[in-house]
Amino acid sequence: MGLDIRIGKIKLKNPVMVASGTFGYAKEVEGLIDLRKLGAIVTKTITLKKRPGNIMPRICETASGMLNSIGLQNEGIEDFIEEKLPYLSKIGVPLIVSISGETIKEFCELSKILDNEKAVKGIELNISCPNIKVSAFAKASADRRRSQFTVHSLIAQDKSATYEVVRGVRRTTDKTLITKLSPNVTDIVEIAQAACKGGSDAISLVNTFFGMAIDIHTKMPRLGNIIGGLSGPCIKPLALKMVWEVAKAIEKPVIGMGGIMDGDDAIEFMIAGAKAVQIGTANFVEPGICEKIIKGIEEYLKKNKIKDIGKILGNLQSK
């Protein structure tokens, strides 16, 4: 039974990756999962300089989901290369490093550094974190007037900013580039197309949805940052629809995510057109869940006598 797939230049033995920010740098999960079973590991997002992260509280559970406003807390690229990369290099699973920046220059500096690291197989551009403000991009954007009114502007909310970032990074590296999109847009297809035009090898979607929760007794927001990103099973139908739309519109592979909790959920995303999937919030509930999801996919294929996983890709039926 063939579970292996290819995303850009990366060969994966199965289509299940862990999503950025839900698996740390893998060492945290050691002993709770056989890391070698994973299709790929996507790291927590790295920035050029250390980021302390947002004020507390940063987490709030909601119906079948959770809100977070971590704020890309990380120790910066230098620490990543010295402290985290040696461990990640030894696992024997394709490593994809998630990066984010406040300017195109920052993204490019990061990708240049990573381009020198043999162990890094791919780079995921996190242009869709809802918990940081990127005012620099608002200025650079072609659509200035609108940007001025966008309080929480994301690169992934602007097709020209998306194009510029991807194109800039593309010039610095031949490694597989994945662009991670935000669902907080009117038309996600045009953003995906802009990323492809910029030279992205694949598109991953969706990052979290903007959301908030209020404590009615104190009338205070439940997150220190007031708003955060919603994830978990509650967003699955929304994510699935966007994956379907994007997969239909672009040639490049789509990596689907949003509330996947088991093998059946993963299959659903593949039928909608995702070549691979990422598992996020589910890792918090059960650190070993990816192994179960891989098994679940295998069982589905076996039961339905499907020899190659490629056969279900985008195979949505109509009446």
Partner: peptide, 10 residues
């Protein structure tokens, strides 16, 4: 959320 240092929530 996680209890093991991956979510950075606490």
């Amino acid at each position: 959320a996680c209890g093991i240092g991956t979510c950075l929530g606490c």
